[in-house]
Write a protein that binds this DNA or RNA. Structure first.
Ligand SMILES: [Zn+2]
Ligand SMILES: [Zn+2]
Length: 803
DNA sequence: AGCACGCCGACT
DNA sequence: GTCGGCGTGCTC
């Protein structure tokens, strides 16, 4: 018997395995591998993915037949089938969930429930419920309980049946287009007619110049500045021919650019280019780590390597942490490769994403640039995968499946015998350590690309002294303030970083010390003057600012700590006429607002760009000659072994925004911990020094990269059952793991309560433990089975954050 | 996820 | 006796 193994579209523990189906006669000659199919499953029809085809002689029970295929072409090629199998095991996720992540959202089907009459039913029912149809769509919430009762009894009697239909969605809009239907003679004769209106004349002249184009009515009306009715009349007269095309939505086309060409590389860049290029040419599965200081011209190297790859008939993938923050890079890529590049990011609609996906699969597009999920784009024959800013934690998905784009990139590069290029000014310790061991090849660029441009001069300002000499609570040291004023006078620009949004970090009663907290998370609420409210930054809870203390009634409420809002207000009052743009989550909620702020700042409409970590990433503004860090200590004391690394990266990256175009840049770092190693080494722009120091700290504490880490979590609506469950998890796994594996906990998570759920964790640290994967997958299947429904188990391999 | 099966309390 | 509550388990 010819059979197919099908993963059904049901992300549950019990259905996380292939089910075997018979292949119907009409599909026997068809290769079903990777196809979406409709299959009967229990009482209903589900969608599924064929992950294998073969022979089976099972006689223990009657196999069911595949009902039909959904698409003409398979949606998963053999690479993606293998990848999904590996990844689901690697990150402990259901296979369907991984497949859904690999595929564009538009492939998620909609199940429509319906009712169908199969026998005699009372006339009244036929009229009232079926509205005299044989089959209707059925949504229980649209019917009264009486009606549901009647329906249920008729189903029991076998007179009507429930049906499910699987609906495909988003196959792209069909649009009406018009094209020229006249030959030269026709046009000439029509143009000679006396009765011709100006609009008609315009249209005819246009048609004579665009013999082969297809245009939408609206488009034509706009181009020629004539009314729609003129065009419709012309259609009636058969001047124009009507047809329908499927619109492929291509968001890159909307970015208008002029073509640019490769720029001559400097000697640093040339060296890097040559090493990587030779590996691409030789089809070596090699990974390079490019450690290039900020402004060293990594992008130009990327572009020329992509060009080379394409010239060899292969495809290329460029991953960036966040599209919105790298508009310059996108523009550059687009200007170099024009329409042959696909842009994939979270801002696309399902339909846009599907269109791009199909063009990539069909080989029409050979260059893909995109964020995390673009790593799954269905390119074939990949020659080069570039991951820019490889240290960014954005590349790790929070929530299932918890994958890291770097892991996928390396897997795919191996599959394709391709080259991976990881680039950063501040590589993750993990990658840098691998380069040390020779697993990755280390390449460096230590000079800024623009001739004459140097790394900025960095100085640390000890805020303890400032508070002693001036008055405490000063957010601006006199040094920083003076320099901001100077920049304003000289028509240069300043970037200010403060990694905390809102007005103040929390509010406190001066009399009794009461601090308002979130009822869902028990975390202190942040004051927001924009919205005149207190907000929880973790769940979004919001309440009014108290006029007096709810505990003791005192009207003396103190605002503690400083956020971006307060800095904006202060700066406006301290420097006369200064124009400040604020860039944080609160000012960029609206679609397009981020781009607008950056554009306006680039045009010189502002003196200062003030914001959270967003201002540290990738921005490239030539007039910025001063970067100020208001408070470098935020994040330094978080309960996370990577807090030093994160601080170093943030400071180094933001410092790199200064003096990129030849004008000397300056950086002022304000801190209460001027002796902290991460802050000092960031001030020295000394990545290698930081790497060595941090590695010794990690070594002593047995942390990554010396050990692998896995976080096992439990969360539930009540504290006690959840804490008991995590204890049981520990009991379950401990005896199965290798003796050398270190088990930390169980402990409550750093944020112990979030959105009314209680969180607990166990951290596993291991170098080599052959039992780890089997133990954890057993934990999911065996232990997970008896876990109460409202308690969730999570497994996070190589977590990037412990907060 | 649905849906059936099954075992208890409440009602025509 | 029957209806319906939702706890448990299965779906190729
Ligand atoms: Zn009080
Ligand atoms: Zn909250």
């Amino acid at each position: 018997m010819r059979t197919a193994s099908v993963i059904v579209d049901l992300p549950t523990r019990q259905t996380n395995q292939p089910f075997t189906y018979l292949i119907p006669d009409d599909l026997l000659d068809f290769n079903l591998l990777g196809h979406r199919v409709r299959v009967p499953f229990g009482k209903r029809n589900l969608m599924g993915y064929v992950v294998a085809v073969g022979q089976s002689e099972r006689s223990d029970f009657q196999l069911k037949k595949i009902e039909s295929i959904i698409d003409e072409k398979p949606v998963l090629n053999s690479e993606m089938l293998k990848l999904s199998e590996w990844l689901s095991n690697y990150v402990f996720s259901y296979r369907v969930q991984v497949i859904q992540t690999i595929l564009p959202n538009a492939f998620k089907p909609k199940y429509l429930k319906g009712l169908k009459i199969v026998d005699q039913v009372p006339e009244k029912i036929k009229e009232n419920i079926f509205l005299n149809n044989q089959e209707i769509e059925f949504l229980p919430k649209n019917y009264t309980s009486e009606q549901i009762k009647v329906i249920n009894s008729l189903i029991r009697q076998g007179k009507i049946v429930q049906t499910t239909t699987i609906q495909k969605k988003n196959k792209g809009k069909k649009v009406k287009v018009l094209s020229n239907n006249l030959n030269d003679n026709d046009i000439a004769t029509n143009l000679n007619k006396k009765s011709l209106s100006d609009s008609q004349k315009k249209l005819l002249i246009f048609l004579s110049g665009h013999r082969d184009g297809f245009f939408q009515v609206k488009e034509l009306a706009e181009i020629l500045d004539i009314s729609k009715s003129t065009i419709l009349t012309a259609e009636k007269k058969s001047w124009l021919k009507k047809s329908e095309v499927r619109m492929t939505r291509n968001p890159v086309k909307k970015i208008a650019v002029t073509k640019t060409n490769a720029v001559e590389l400097n000697s640093d860049q040339k060296k890097v280019f040559n090493s990587v290029e030779s590996a691409i040419t030789k089809n070596e599965n090699k990974t390079f780590l490019l450690e290039g200081i900020t402004g060293s011209g990594k992008t130009e190297v990327y572009l020329q390597l992509i060009e080379k790859t394409i010239a060899q008939g292969k495809t290329a993938l460029l991953l960036v942490p966040e599209i919105a923050l790298t508009p310059q890079m996108i523009r550059l890529v687009k200007s170099r490769f024009l329409d042959s590049v696909a842009l994939l990011h979270s801002g696309l609609s399902d339909g846009e994403r599907l269109d791009q996906w199909e063009e990539i699969r069909d080989g029409k597009i050979k260059i893909v640039i995109g964020t995390r999920s673009a790593v799954f784009s269905p390119l074939t024959n990949i020659g080069l995968i570039i991951m820019d800013e490889e240290h960014e934690t954005n590349y790790k998905q929070e929530g299932n499946p918890r994958y890291h784009a770097r892991d996928i990139a390396l897997w795919r590069a191996k599959y394709h015998q391709a080259v991976t290029l990881l680039g950063s000014a501040t590589p993750s310790l993990e990658s840098r350590a691998r380069a040390q061991k020779g697993i990755f090849k280390l390449l460096t660029m230590n000079h800024r690309a623009v001739s004459g441009a140097k790394l900025p001069d960095v100085s640390i300002v000890d805020m303890r002294e400032v508070w002693q000499k001036e008055h405490a609570d000063n957010d601006f040291s006199p040094t920083l303030l003076k320099k901001i004023e100077e920049r304003k006078e000289n028509h240069e620009q300043t970037i200010l970083l403060l990694n905390r949004r809102g007005f103040s970090s929390f509010v406190m009663c001066r009399n009794c010390g009461y601090v308002p907290r979130c009822p869902n998370c028990n975390l202190s609420l942040t004051l927001h003057m924009d919205s005149h409210s207190l907000k929880c930054h973790y769940c979004g809870y919001e309440e009014a600012i108290p006029k007096k203390c709810p505990v003791c009634g005192s009207p003396q409420i103190r605002y503690v700590g400083t956020g971006t809002e307060k800095i904006e207000t202060k700066l406006n009052s301290l420097v006369n006429g200064i124009r400040v743009a604020r860039l944080d989550q609160d000012t960029t909620k609206r679609k397009g607002s981020l781009e607008k702020i950056l554009r306006d700042f680039g045009k010189g409409n502002y003196d200062v760009l003030l914001g959270t970590q967003m201002v540290a990433k990738g921005l490239d503004f030539p007039d910025v000659t001063l970067v100020g860090v208001i408070n470098a200590d935020i994040g330094l004391n978080l309960p996370d072994f990577r807090s030093g690394e994160k601080t170093f990266q943030l400071l180094t990256q933001v410092a790199g925004r200064s003096g990129r175009a030849g004008k000397t840049g300056e950086v002022i770092i304000q801190t209460f911990n001027p002796d902290n190693y991460a802050i000092k080494l960031a001030a020295d722009q000394n990545y290698e020094g930081f790497y060595k120091t941090e590695m010794s700290i990690r070594h002593i504490a047995d942390y990554s990269p010396y050990y692998y880490t896995i976080q096992v979590g439990i969360d539930g609506p009540d504290q006690f059952p959840a804490s008991r469950a995590i204890d049981e998890v520990a009991e379950f796994i401990k005896p199965k793991l290798a003796k050398e594996t270190i088990v930390l906990g169980p402990t409550p998570k750093a944020i112990a309560k979030l959105r009314n759920r209680y969180y607990f964790q166990i951290i596993l640290k291991y170098k080599k433990d052959p039992n780890i994967e089997s133990t954890l997958s057993e934990l999911q299947t065996v232990f997970g089975e008896k876990l109460p429904k409202d308690i969730y188990l999570s497994i996070d391999r190589d977590p990037v954050s412990f907060i």
